[in-house]
Design a protein around this nucleic acid. Sequence first.
DNA 1: CTGTTAGCGCATTCAA
DNA 2: TTGAATGCGCTAACAG
Lengths: 349, 349
Amino acid sequence: MNSLASTHKKPTISDVAKLAKVGKTSVSRYLNGEFDALSERIKAQIELAINILDYRPNQMARSLKRGSSKLIAYLIPDITNPYSVEVMQGLEKACQDNGYTLLVCNTNRSLEKEHYYLQLLSSYSVEGLVFHPIRSHVNSLTAYPYPVVLVDRKIENFSADRVGLDNIQAATLATMHLIDNGFDAILFISEPIVGISSRLDRVNTFKSVVANHHNVSGDVIEITEQTDSEHDRALLATQIAQFYDAYPTKRKAIISINGSLTLEIALALKMLNLANSQEVGLLGFDDPKWAAVVGDGITSIKQPTYRMGYATFELLLKRINGYQGKPQDILFAGELIIRSSTQSLSSDR
Amino acid sequence: MNSLASTHKKPTISDVAKLAKVGKTSVSRYLNGEFDALSERIKAQIELAINILDYRPNQMARSLKRGSSKLIAYLIPDITNPYSVEVMQGLEKACQDNGYTLLVCNTNRSLEKEHYYLQLLSSYSVEGLVFHPIRSHVNSLTAYPYPVVLVDRKIENFSADRVGLDNIQAATLATMHLIDNGFDAILFISEPIVGISSRLDRVNTFKSVVANHHNVSGDVIEITEQTDSEHDRALLATQIAQFYDAYPTKRKAIISINGSLTLEIALALKMLNLANSQEVGLLGFDDPKWAAVVGDGITSIKQPTYRMGYATFELLLKRINGYQGKPQDILFAGELIIRSSTQSLSSDR
DNA sequence: CTGTTAGCGCATTCAA
DNA sequence: TTGAATGCGCTAACAG
């Protein structure tokens, strides 16, 4: 019941050459677009033969020969993170536009798996790697045999292009927005910070902005990587409650370091019956689609993730093609999307 | 500044053989785990040499030789869809557990791209394909040179294993839940149905369940694929408003065919100031994480997506290993997660 | 148990 | 312009 019988094995370049009555070399040249070295007659014959046989070159053989594979890999710590998925969309499109195919590898926050994939990828002759590392310390000391573009964060002792958010700008924007809206007790909640440059930048910026405003208190708590467990959820709620109780006379708000965490916080706030900007404001980095609909909308810092993904590929391609300029940081500005979660009913400034 | 110099080119199996003073074949055997055909002495030598050289076999060469690549592909219509991403997680894990690597290809709802990838994949010698087709009519007539497992929906004239939701069970569950909770005007909103078996099953089931309850009216509207445009959003809102006005005396609820659409509907409901189960109930297929936090929580039909992904791979692997049994449908039951969006204040049954 | 040999499908010398 | 020959790194006969 399969669409077609296709008992034939896949045609090879030799089959095409034979049918077209030309040498394999000519076919190879045709495939690689070296038309200036081919007569019209031969070209036409080859074209015909290819169509008849429905021939398509074997990428594996090509890769073996030339070392390149038209494959690039995207290594991400958490496939669940909307940020990663959004970046992936831009990446995927760019790949398609340039004849590349994307290998997606989820390290699932395990350094071991990160290592595993880093090794594995070279054996697939990937031409380049888009690397969203778990943290700055990568435990594979071997040099990568392919260009690497980092996403979101840096790696120690490894200099490579990086595409990411302008965290200083974005964190300033976020913090100032809260302060300007009359919040004077702000809790910044982050997942583990050590070794993750982007998080560090955000937290430090937050601290320094708050330090410039003597009337506002700024707390930072660093929680463990959130799992789906009720336990983590309860713990988070407890910590938020503590913060809430600590500033009875102030207007309180929370900044969340990323999209997944924002969701957890929203959940916790709901459990605590505090899910209302009059009780506790909420602002999150990342702007997943649901941010507009949770509660009456969560104010967020939107990253141009799609463009970032696309740009990442372009940078990588430049490297693949031999560009040797010194590594650059391409930082995108974050955009503040204001929603109800940081509104004051009365402008009580 | 790169971690290591690595001026050497990558070691090959010959290098290992030379260093270990054995034949290439023995090394190959070692690599493939045929230890019973190797003396302890040789085995140790090879092991040593491999470690010294930090050798890793070239997958491309292997693939070329044996035709298999340890690569499988996942072809999805919309990488934005949380369903697909969740399935992908299970898939990715299963791949990892079995030494496979996942190629992710986003057809972005374009039949042309679907065709493009279907062609491309064979040239990468993928060993199997997990295929979430755009719709039942696939415009590539060529037979696939690799096993295929379908996800979510069927394809006409093409018999293959399929993993999906038990749509009849799930749609019955959903509809009955609404009816039992006193809703007697139910609007089922779907994205295009033609050629998409899973949607058809859901809609038909809905219709027949409603038909068995004479006091409840069931409407179905089929909207176009939602883009991110304001226009689509406004149109959707209009249609919902019409439904709302049509049944002034009844208790109204909406069923949404999938997660993305549920979000759009929630947005529309909010625009219309109807985002409250007392005004209009809401129930959606799929249970993305945010479903718990939108409004006071959206009741949904949860699919065991992760397990589905994992199971899909297992099925595929069986086929890859030559299993010839006749194609089967593996249907998973949907689970109803009841939240506020379908609660009645008064039990007005 | 072990090694030699011969390709897998293609791109690249090199000659013609 | 064209094509024959060579080898990319590996595995699978086939001998020993």
